[in-house]
Nucleic acid binder design. Structure first.
Lengths: 340, 340
DNA sequence: CGTCCTTTGCAAAACGTTTTGCTTGTTGTG
DNA sequence: CACAACAAGCAAAACGTTTTGCAAAGGACG
């Protein structure tokens, strides 16, 4: 790489002016140049390995071709990775690249990071949370095209995408019902977040649809980790009229239920069936037997967010939409018919 | 936000020239402006919320203040997240921002992504792998400052940072030895990667240091996931002279060992002690009892890589270094004294 | 009072593109 | 043959900064 090759070098090599090179390379203005010249210029450009400096063209066009992704937590779960990957794939396909920042829970840091993105003239922002929750948008990003990822806002003028919690829970419970279970318990989350309410609602919906009424003592809540799930499941499975199946708020909770079952000498799925939610592969796949669960479409949500964002940026104005994405059931080995 | 405020607006508002504003704001050239004027200009700038357009200044300075992070897999493990967060934190502190791309295993895609980063004039690149491995650097990034993250190259002219696998394994095994174990088994990985060799070497080192010799039949290898660990552990624990403790290649393998122990009616840690590696919190924390393991310093490696990269970019040339970062033991509940 | 520094500020060029006129030729038409 | 219409390519301006060179003003000194 002797000397950085810019558009001038291409022009010189092709024996035309800089202008012509630009016209020849940009699809939009290529009508201003003879097809033959165009071809020639393109050949030379490719030959030299010319790639336009996006700082310069961004400056000129007021379009950086950069998208910002601001998230609270990139670290603890693999979910974050899937969302980001979905976002990046979509961005890449349209010639954009993502700048990712994450702020933990520090909202002042978040502010400064957003400003930093704005200094880089990002064309839009995906504002992501690592689990489905309500947010208020920082006012920094007024005026900037924005899409919410795994979050909803009361401000309905901004598009958002979240998992369809209710339908997901319904699907999970359906797999239990269609395996023959009627006495189904649920271990819900104690936090006041959309998933908690949505999944409980889905649980009830599915039962009601089949004319089943849940026993009140079979519905419980716990801190949504393995220890919480273990204790809650321990209590549920020790009941005289213990449920024959457990619908768990999350895969981590379900892992606790496995531990409880094991401690009580109950086999899965012969003695008790279990379904989780999240499809946290690291766990669902590692449990023995594998955990039947419902996948949260993180990759697809990341994609959706960016596609929508790019349409807002490049396309005509269309009304914002609040999207809910479907969550497919992933069958493994933790659901069987109820014991006789 | 009536109209975008640029340096001209600040100049007008402060009643000075654009030049003076620039000088006043840039620490380096501030000697050319009266301290009083400087203060005034800065006040006005802050008042207006002025923030320089980095596209423009990048173009002018040939410095984008952007770092590229190219990785193979951002998705499957939470490790990726920790590395990226470490990298970002370090970048942010120095006023840089990260552009993250990931290519899966598609090296042609990787090429194109790197070129895209170059178009954005990134000042340097962190080339990251999601587990410690050897790589050959794509030639695209000749001439660009580069640091390897969780990877090593035969090309010693580029700096790299990886976990100190050997010391990590030694530390893990030490915790078993100091709990009184003498018959220690190991379930290694079957893949031919640095971690496999390093951890085995560490295992031997620790034993040798205490005058112990491992029984050959106690050293085994398996596919490094839970199922592999389960089967290997099953075999090991069914041996007539079964080891009293198991050193597992990874936490996922260790989870398999838990399952095997449970299936064989062995309690942890009363009947058998187990240590893992990786400190995959999702698993290590969720197991019951908690898994004692060795943390891989992903966050710190990410940080190290960026700090080093920025020094290469901004500072004087110094020889490349191949860094190995220490791995702290995380004590939970899976190690106890050997049974009598 | 004239000369020579020093201090302070400004105008202008440059970074690498894209795009808007404008010029030059060429072809078609009356 | 003259003139209009049009195609093809070019020069120059613009995007928002930073930095270099220069000018003006002020002060010190002989």
């Amino acid at each position: 790489m002797a000397t950085k090759i810019g558009i001038r070098e291409v022009a010189k090599a092709a024996g035309v002016s800089v202008t012509t090179v630009s016209h020849a390379l940009n699809e939009a203005t290529s009508s201003r140049v003879n097809p033959q010249t165009q071809q020639h210029v393109r050949a030379v450009a490719k030959d030299l390995g010319y790639a336009p400096n996006r700082l310069a063209s961004g400056l000129r066009n007021q379009r950086s071709q950069i998208l910002g992704l601001v998230s609270d937590e990139i670290t603890t779960t693999p979910f974050a990775g899937a969302m980001i990957r979905g976002a990046q794939d979509a961005a890449y396909e349209r010639g954009y690249v993502m700048m990712v920042v994450n702020s933990g829970l520090d909202s002042e840091l978040e502010q400064r990071e957003i400003r930093m993105l704005q200094q880089h003239q990002v064309d839009g922002i995906v504002y992501a949370k690592m689990y489905h929750q309500g947010v208020v948008l920082p006012e920094e990003l007024d005026g900037l095209p924005t899409v919410l990822l795994d979050a909803v806002s009361t401000d309905l003028s901004v598009s958002s995408v979240v998992p369809d919690e209710i339908a997901a829970a319904e699907a999970a419970v359906e797999t239990l019902i269609s395996a023959g279970h009627t006495g189904i318990g649920m271990i819900n989350n104690v936090d006041d977040i959309p998933a908690t309410h949505g999944r409980l609602e889905g649980f009830h919906n599915a039962l009601r649809r089949h004319g089943l009424t849940p026993a009140p003592q079979h519905i419980t809540a716990a801190v949504a980790d393995t220890a919480g799930g273990r204790e809650a499941a321990m209590a549920l499975l020790a009941l005289p009229d213990r449920p024959s199946a457990l619908f768990c708020f999350s895969d981590r909770v379900a892992m606790g239920a496995y531990q409880a079952a094991s401690a009580l000498g109950l086999r899965i799925p012969e003695d008790v069936s279990i379904v989780g939610m999240d499809n946290l592969e690291l766990i669902a796949d590692a449990l023995w037997p594998g955990l039947t669960t419902v996948a949260l479409p993180h990759y697809e949500m990341g994609r959706w967010a960016v596609v929508r964002l790019l349409n807002d940026i490049e396309g005509p104005t269309v009304p914002a939409v609040q999207e809910k994405l479907a969550c497919p059931v992933v069958h493994r080995g933790s659901v069987g018919p109820p014991p006789l």
